[in-house]
Design a protein around this nucleic acid. Structure first.
Lengths: 246, 246
DNA sequence: CGTTCGGTTGATTAGAATCAACTAATGTGG
DNA sequence: CCACATTAGTTGATTCTAATCAACCGAACG
């Protein structure tokens, strides 16, 4: 059961943590790394498909995602969580599930709050994470609102590739992206079949492939075009701003 | 030009501010309200349709919204801002526009950060706002991903009604909701015509009306049903979680 | 070695966009 | 205060995108 590297135990000391440079605690100077231990309340290894019930944690290895059930029995995937991401299970009916075998570092919400109370830098780091989350949700909203199926798929894959690049988990050609087509579909408001067709068309056009957990980008320019609205220019804006102020 | 109450100047003192109980500074005790003046850098009155360029501000009267242009010349409305809401113009290409005549209180980002640095309560209040924003974006994402046109319209109107209720700007029967159908359409990823048809059907069914800037809810139960997925139950989940952990 | 899961493909249907008028408000300048 | 112009809302016909329904294939796996 331990062939999967995502199930590798975390390092005992935060000083050796490979994801800390991208994570909430990146702002804690090396000399004070020991203090983080007061906030950590444990680590956990989970198997792909497991629901995660811990309230606050930092992904160490593997992927997770947050989702919510619709009354008609389908799913909306709200966000994907990569190594280094801080995840909070929210009160609202959303659930968190391991997308691959994964390991993460559980934090105590109270002690985290207390720590932020006397370390504004940490609070700021937390705020930055929330702000990025919100920006990502807005991007996705724009995708679901105004992009067609191919554009949504291309955009999400580019987003994930960018996030992975920034934390050293990808090169320009591609990355390990363990999504099933069903994850894509449920994140993008598409049926599995239609997500499949979108991927098939990207493959046929020689733009990119998603296969056996690996994303290969063959023509980044074309992929960006697709994500940036493939269609030809349309009519004018529905709502036009008038004056400038400020 | 001053018949519109949203253009009424703000009170000189934050102590008299009617929206403070719902706003960022709700956590500042009455005795220390004077200190807020150090963070305020001014007030502004804008006309409906004006673009707002100030970086950080608290809505006092009127509505605003954040939107982003799509390469094909359409709009995605990302969020609506009501009195009491803290708004930040983000770096990313989003714009903020006054939806009605409006007034707001401009804050200095640096001084706000400095203040939060020695007042963790304020930082927490800020975090709460960001968390609520993210939750709202997630709700909307679910709408665009999995609800049909009628469900999206019903859901957004209920969301706005709830937000207005909480700040005393509505009663159970309805509220002032100055949205044009184009705003609804651009927020929900619909064409104006289709948004119109969804509203028309809600009106015909005696569920709710949106007319001349006023939302009237005639049958809240039916409206909630509509927002909570009108359709009959479908097949099973695309992705089923397996085990429980934590 | 059969079963299940993930992926693929085709045919049909449904929901929403687009296109095209047209009407009702709002507003503005003369 | 009226005549015209513009904006907002409405309705119908047509087209198109994506969902649904229905198989089927290949690989992984117990």
């Amino acid at each position: 059961m331990s062939r999967n590297p995502n199930l590798t135990p975390l390092p005992g000391s935060c000083a050796a943590c490979t994801v800390r440079p991208f994570a909430l605690f990146r702002v804690i100077p090396q000399a004070r790394v020991g203090e983080i231990a007061r906030i950590r309340s444990g680590v956990r290894l989970v198997r792909s498909g497991d629901a995660i019930l811990d309230a606050v944690f930092t992904m160490y290895a593997g992927w997770a995602f947050t989702w919510t059930a619709t009354p008609d029995g389908r799913r909306q995937v709200l966000d994907f969580h990569l190594p280094g991401d801080l995840v909070e299970r929210s009160e609202d009916a959303a659930e968190v599930e391991a997308l691959t075998d994964a390991s993460f570092c559980i934090l105590s919400k109270e002690r985290l709050c207390a720590f932020m109370g006397h370390d504004p830098g940490l609070a700021l780091s937390y705020v930055e994470g929330l702000t990025r989350d919100r920006a990502r949700m807005r991007e996705r909203l724009t995708s679901l609102g105004r992009r067609d199926a191919a554009g949504r798929v291309a955009h999400l894959l580019l987003e994930l590739h960018g996030r992975l690049l920034r934390r050293g988990g990808a090169d320009a050609r591609g990355a390990a992206v363990p999504l099933k087509q069903a994850h894509l579909a449920d994140a993008l408001g598409l049926s599995v079949e239609h997500a499949n067709r979108a991927l098939a068309s990207m493959r046929k056009e020689g733009i990119a492939t998603l296969n056996k957990g690996r994303l290969e980008i063959q023509d980044r320019r074309a992929m960006e075009d697709l994500a940036g609205w493939a269609g030809t220019a349309h009519a004018g804006t529905t709502l036009a701003p008038r004056t400038l102020v400020g």
